[in-house]
């Protein structure tokens, strides 16, 4: 029987000993299993001086740990602010729901007061805005302010037609004409006539002078 086999047999006996607590016979080496039984019975924990005090301390830390963590959580300023905001929001929620049906009175600007809103053709194609629901969650806080109708001048026809890339204006003819304070140069293009005036002007004709 080689060492490997003896070792396997010894360990099988040892495991049985540790499970049952009863010393077994190990024929190849009875002394070895007897020593193993001594080791299995050996308990040095009676020499410990801290067993009970450590238990009490750790048990205390475990219990206090939860409250300590809670206290540490609320010792931070951001946590206090978040808690205050949450409490305030919860407290104001019923109040907001109670006033949900009444929209606050918002005075209309004087220039447009009394003018009914008229949607022009382009706007009428937009999907209609939903009617504000009375008693809805946000109905009490927000209200639409009457707004002046949007107006725009129609685009006028410009006399210069596009002449293609590289030649936006084509000079058809040019002649000098007499004007009130000078002269002018008349340009004729294929699509219109322009007069380039040439006259003496003062700076005030162009710039507005202001005195501080």
């Amino acid at each position: 029987m080689n060492e490997q086999m003896i070792s396997e047999l010894f360990n099988a006996e040892l495991d049985a000993l540790l499970r049952s607590g009863k010393e077994r016979s190990f024929l190849p080496d009875p002394g070895a299993i007897a020593l193993a039984a001594e080791l299995a019975r050996a308990d040095f924990s009676g020499q410990s001086l801290i067993k009970e005090s450590l238990r009490a301390r750790l048990n205390g830390e475990e219990t206090v740990g939860f409250f300590e963590k809670l206290r540490a959580l609320f010792s931070a300023n951001y946590a206090r602010a978040a808690l205050a905001a949450a409490v305030l929001a919860i407290a104001l929620l019923p109040l907001a729901r109670r006033h949900a049906g009444r929209a606050p009175e918002v005075p209309a600007p004087p220039a447009i007061a009394g003018r009914p809103f008229q949607a022009r053709a382009p706007f009428s194609r937009l999907p209609a805005a939903p009617e504000p629901s009375v008693g809805g969650p946000a109905g009490g806080f927000f209200a639409s302010i009457p707004m002046a109708a949007l107006e725009a001048e129609p685009l006028k026809d410009f006399p210069i037609a596009s002449a293609g890339a590289g030649s936006p204006v084509v000079l058809a003819a040019g002649r000098e004409v007499k004007l009130e304070n000078g002269s002018g140069l008349v340009f004729e293009t294929g699509s219109g006539v322009f007069i380039l005036e040439r006259r003496v002007i003062n700076p005030e004709d162009i710039f507005e002078r202001r005195v501080l």
Partner: peptide, 15 residues
């Protein structure tokens, strides 16, 4: 198996 051999040898040495 190595653990088993180490245990057996150690017990023999202690013995």
């Amino acid at each position: 198996s190595n653990v088993g051999i180490v245990i057996y040898r150690a017990v023999k040495k202690m013995q």
